[in-house]
Write a protein that binds this DNA or RNA. Structure first.
Ligand SMILES: [Mn+2]
Ligand SMILES: [Mn+2]
Ligand SMILES: [Zn+2]
Ligand SMILES: [Zn+2]
Lengths: 140, 140
DNA sequence: CACTATAACGCAACTCGGTTGCGTTTGTAA
DNA sequence: TTACAAACGCAACCGAGTTGCGTTATAGTG
């Protein structure tokens, strides 16, 4: 826990300030149990002690993404979702209620597949996205 | 070839008309060598014998998607891309030039993974998306 | 070849996530 | 305390995608 504090400290050693918006945004992401959209974040911030301009939120998300502390999630042309960056993982997305859950996938099975692609297709694989769509426990 | 004609025929037997927009749009997707966005499609149509209103293009895409002839592709929060529906497959996306290519992936290796998820997570998997991001031959 | 029903279309106005420019505020270290 | 730049707010903007509604055109019928 206290990921927020750790990130703020790391940022400070690199010359970035501990601002109210930055801390509030990090705490929001840390306490969220699933990825949030920017509108989500704005609402949660607004229901706290103070709200922030949407430009600030977008810029801060962009900053934290570039710094590697936040990762962006793309699902079926909905709005972008954000979560605190962690080890590489994938998601279960309920097509009914929209909830998003982390899921561990054994990647070894098809990392050889990536190497095969690199060789056969002449394409240098840097990253991949894999998400599962279906029905969560409460929706099936 | 002549996927366009086949689709138009199939649609006609179901009571849907062979309209100019529908035919032009299908031909555009058929001759495209990679998925297109709606703005892409609008531009290509406009440089042909006649152009169509963007609402028409959106509605037609939606119609063909629902009818199962077009599939939508979502990559890293860019605009939606569309291609003629075919057998399930995945894509190689160049993060430099943006080109999108089909790629065959042996799914057997991790279909057991899906079943494991269903059992362990209590989540009914209906579908998945898997895309590879990296550098194409000309960009690496 | 009319006639008709309705699928398909165009237009204008709108929504909303996301961006940009610019002037102001605020955190931090000297 | 001061000064510099990081961070912020505001207003205007952009562009993909949507909606309502009146009009046009396709295709089956007589
Ligand atoms: Mn996650
Ligand atoms: Mn494809
Ligand atoms: Zn659900
Ligand atoms: Zn490339």
């Amino acid at each position: 826990m206290e990921t927020t504090k750790r990130i703020l400290d790391e940022l400070k050693t690199n010359g970035f300030r501990r601002s109210a918006a930055r801390e509030a945004l990090l705490r929001t992401l840390e306490t969220a149990q699933s990825p949030l959209s920017v509108p989500d974040i704005e609402r949660r911030l607004a229901s706290g002690p103070r709200s922030f301009n949407k430009t600030t939120v977008y810029r801060e998300i962009e900053f934290l993404k570039t710094a590697g502390y936040v990762s962006e999630l793309t699902l079926r042309n909905d709005v972008a979702l954000y979560e605190l960056a962690g080890p590489h993982h994938h998601h279960l997305v309920c097509v009914d209620c929209g909830t998003v859950r982390d899921v561990a996938v054994k990647e070894e099975s098809w990392e050889c597949e990536e190497r095969r692609i690199e060789k056969k297709e002449g394409f240098r694989v840097l990253d991949h996205s894999l998400e599962f769509f279906g029905l969560c426990g409460s929706c099936q």
